[in-house]
Design a protein around this nucleic acid. Sequence first.
DNA 1: TTGAAAGCGCTAACAG
DNA 2: CTGTTAGCGCTTTCAA
Lengths: 336, 336
Amino acid sequence: MTGIEDVAVATGVSTATVSRALRGLAGVSAGTRARVLSAAQELGYVPSSAASGLASGRTMAMGVLLPLIERWYFSAVLEGVDRQLRAAGYDLIVFSLGGTGVNRERVFHRSILRKRIDALLVMCMELTEDEHLALSELESPTIVVGGSVQGVRHVGIDDGAAVRDAVEHLISLGHTRIGHVRGGGAFGLYFEVPRIREESYLATMAAHGLPLWDDWSVFGDFRFGEAKIAVKRMLSTVDERPTALFCSSDEMAFGALMAASELGISVPGELSIVGIDDHEFAGPMGLTTVRQVPEEQGAFAADLLLRELEGALPVLNPPTQPHELIQRASTGPAPR
Amino acid sequence: MTGIEDVAVATGVSTATVSRALRGLAGVSAGTRARVLSAAQELGYVPSSAASGLASGRTMAMGVLLPLIERWYFSAVLEGVDRQLRAAGYDLIVFSLGGTGVNRERVFHRSILRKRIDALLVMCMELTEDEHLALSELESPTIVVGGSVQGVRHVGIDDGAAVRDAVEHLISLGHTRIGHVRGGGAFGLYFEVPRIREESYLATMAAHGLPLWDDWSVFGDFRFGEAKIAVKRMLSTVDERPTALFCSSDEMAFGALMAASELGISVPGELSIVGIDDHEFAGPMGLTTVRQVPEEQGAFAADLLLRELEGALPVLNPPTQPHELIQRASTGPAPR
DNA sequence: TTGAAAGCGCTAACAG
DNA sequence: CTGTTAGCGCTTTCAA
């Protein structure tokens, strides 16, 4: 492996000068810098991150802690984070819990605290006090994306308002019998989003004096398949059907759409369906939904952290990210 | 930050002994080990990965290079890789090209070669000669997952055979007019899968002496939306419709399903549709498809690399991963 | 503008 | 079984 020493020898300067030149620091003459650069290029020199990390205390890497990788929202946020990191020359280290909470402590202590990262982005989780403490000792800037949590700064949409917009859209179409397809906190950890969305659905219904039937609330676990089964069962067994369904995610709304189609229930004629997300499939499926753009949320949060690493003052109250009702073919006036 | 020295002082031993005890090396008395462990625990000591990486030459991290994160196959493989790494105490570093090839060289040189990783898993790409060379100098074990490439060891299904199984399934149902919804190499880089699948479709049709119409081959870019539009246009403008469609991915097959539904073409009565993947939605949508399990592929490849890092001999010809035709409701006998 | 030298925090021989 | 001693390859004062 060619090291900084080789470049120094080749250029006839000290390693200190090579280091300065390569990092673009001031105080290197243009000539020297050029010679260093070309020598480095020629020799194929790439600095060792371990060595520079150890010496400088900066790893040039950012960590993302998430419950699971392969879920639309999570991987989309990751994509946005990665975009910014790539532009800034940072590496992305992914700490996934793999869908369960059991490894959480190990992941946290064995991986996150190893000083491998300069900053941490936490997705959709509430940190425990221990974790908070450990992080603050690390002095790495931290931020939470998705599923706001009290007392921690957070980037994301106003979930409560987004749900309200969805439900009130149904109400404005004359619906009064509105069911809910709920998401799950099946991760065995604090996962805020499903709770917030359910609460806002209930609050909105109450605010409009609309009836809540237990039968109309089914559990779809944020999944197409689960939601389809649950909605199909509900629609085919309930005494009186709802005329509309608010789904806590688009993937569950697709399941509801499918359930209705298999039961021969016309959408939106007999049943209106609204989701949240604006998933890639929502447009082609004609699903009315509330759009959020996770990629932008991830990019925004990553940028915030990146700027702090460059010395900017922490943004304590990041602006709420936008959401927007997108009307498509799956919602219409209440029957009769 | 508490360092190894603090633990040593607290225990009354040398840092070398602490290091040995903590890593579970032989040659430490049970009593000493216990005292070291409890002191480390008490002090909340976590080794610095930069320091141990520099000293030992092992980073305890694995890199994954991929074209894009947010795509079913890629994030599913990532999930499988992560599962194994987590179990082995390794960290996962993600190098994404973000959907384009433009940053490829920078990603490669500035990130991958920084000695931040002990091994590299490359997803669905052919490496250039330069890249190969650079990697071999690094001496990190490397493997490719998905989209086999000549001369490089590779973990994945036999794409040719999988396509053949899908197309021959249609043929066995009496179909002779079989169209193709193609995926894209829209990544601006060597991306093998779409090409392999197309070639196998063509070869299978030829082997059975079946006609190929240009009109029946449409480009869906591996996306629901694109595929839906392309298929809908094709079905509504072509002189003679195909009676079956082979789609190079499930997501495109969903688009085809949607297109048929919007045109009032019954599936499988008038049109049979088969995909490849067994995407999470395929079951609930009743899509006949060829199943592959990317998560297992990723886990398998990661394991291979992990074992080599522990000194095992390289597996030069990893076994082909299984695929399986799953018959569901979207395929049936050819009309008439 | 440049160089010398002292670490960064750990691991790995080599002794004892 | 344990300690001593060198580094790993950079960055960063401090002098020149």
